[in-house]
Measured scan of single mutants.
Amino acid sequence: MGFKLLSKLLVYLTASIMAIASPLAFSVDSSGEYPTVSEIPVGEVRLYQIADGVWSHIATQSFDGAVYPSNGLIVRDGDELLLIDTAWGAKNTAALLAEIEKQIGLPVTRAVSTHFHDDRVGGVDVLRAAGVATYASPSTRRLAEVEGNEIPTHSLEGLSSSGDAVRFGPVELFYPGAAHSTDNLIVYVPSASVLYGGCAIYELSRTSAGNVADADLAEWPTSIERIQQHYPEAQFVIPGHGLPGGLDLLKHTTNVVKAHTNRSVVE
């Protein structure tokens, strides 16, 4: 069995187990497998329904001669939608809004960016022009300005110390501490036991640490421990890039980060 097929099978099995364990909360999309990078042309966006009122959005972007996937989250909030992270750029984010209108038909009224990198804030200006209120932590807003990236308009308070959590509509926002970046936030959907790890969490097929220019490698494993301790009931975990899975993604990420750190020390 090929690795790609095995990865998709694991996603399907995880979703099936969740649907059985929580039949009222989960209505997993039966329309197909989780979209992969090879299936999404740059400039297009796919939506994948995880649970009743919960979707991931998947886009792709060219970077350094390669094409990478990027995940975000959409959560229903009454007759409105909360968006977590842009679709990595203005063109993708405009396509995301169009796809949401086509498939869901509810307005996106608020959006949260989970850290300051372009795959999370690139497209904020498109959201703002569409009347979406954009939010991020003060740290993310400051770092985005320093980096020359787009800056969300509103500040999220109460997320300055490791372990801080605040309720934001249908989700809980959690600051686990520094990891992929010093400002990275985690998003949890309690009604569906869905954990969105953003770039602080890796997919299972990833074996290298990737972009760690703004990471705190020493603190990252401790931050992941905080996530595990705060959300032990999480059933569906979405990484910032690639295929979702279960809580095993947290341990896998820790292993990859520690291996990278150990290699760096040896070198």
Rank of each mutant, 00 (worst) to 15 (best):
L9K: 15
W220C: 05
S62C: 06
D52A: 11
P107G: 06
F116Y: 10
E157Y: 11
V108I: 09
Y196Q: 00
A213W: 07
G177A: 03
V112H: 05
S113V: 07
Y34V: 08
L5E: 14
G148Q: 08
F236L: 09
L243T: 15
L97D: 00
S113G: 06
V257S: 02
I238F: 06
D164P: 05
Q229W: 10
F174Y: 11
V75Q: 02
T114C: 00
V256D: 04
V45S: 06
V124W: 03
P190V: 07
Y175L: 01
A111L: 04
Q61I: 06
L81G: 01
I17Y: 12
D52R: 10
E80C: 06
L24Y: 15
L173Y: 02
V189M: 03
S16W: 15
P239M: 01
G65M: 08
G163V: 05
G78A: 09
R46D: 05
S62V: 05
H241F: 02
A90S: 13
D29K: 10
V166T: 09
S223C: 04
A215S: 13
A213S: 12
V124N: 05
R263G: 14
D119P: 01
H115S: 00
G148F: 06
V42D: 13
E80R: 07
P221Y: 06
A59F: 04
P244N: 02
A87C: 00
G210V: 05
S22F: 09
D79A: 10
L10N: 15
E172C: 03
D77V: 03
L195H: 05
Y68P: 03
S27W: 12
L13P: 09
F3D: 06
I100N: 01
L247H: 14
G2R: 10
S7W: 11
K258S: 14
A213H: 12
A133G: 09
D248K: 09
S113K: 01
N262C: 05
A192C: 05
L83M: 09
I74C: 04
G43M: 03
S162Y: 11
E219K: 08
A94C: 03
G78K: 08
L127P: 04
A178R: 12
G65L: 07
L156T: 03
T182G: 11
G65R: 08
T109A: 10
G163I: 04
Y48M: 15
T207G: 13
D79W: 08
A21T: 14
A87D: 00
V166C: 05
S193Y: 15
D52H: 09
V266Y: 15
T36M: 10
T134L: 01
H180E: 00
E267G: 07
I201K: 01
T60N: 10
G210K: 06
P244V: 06
H252I: 01
L24N: 14
H115P: 03
S56N: 15
G122L: 06
T207K: 14
L83K: 00
S161M: 14
E172L: 05
F3C: 06
A87H: 00
P170I: 05
Q61P: 04
P69V: 11
Y135I: 01
A165I: 14
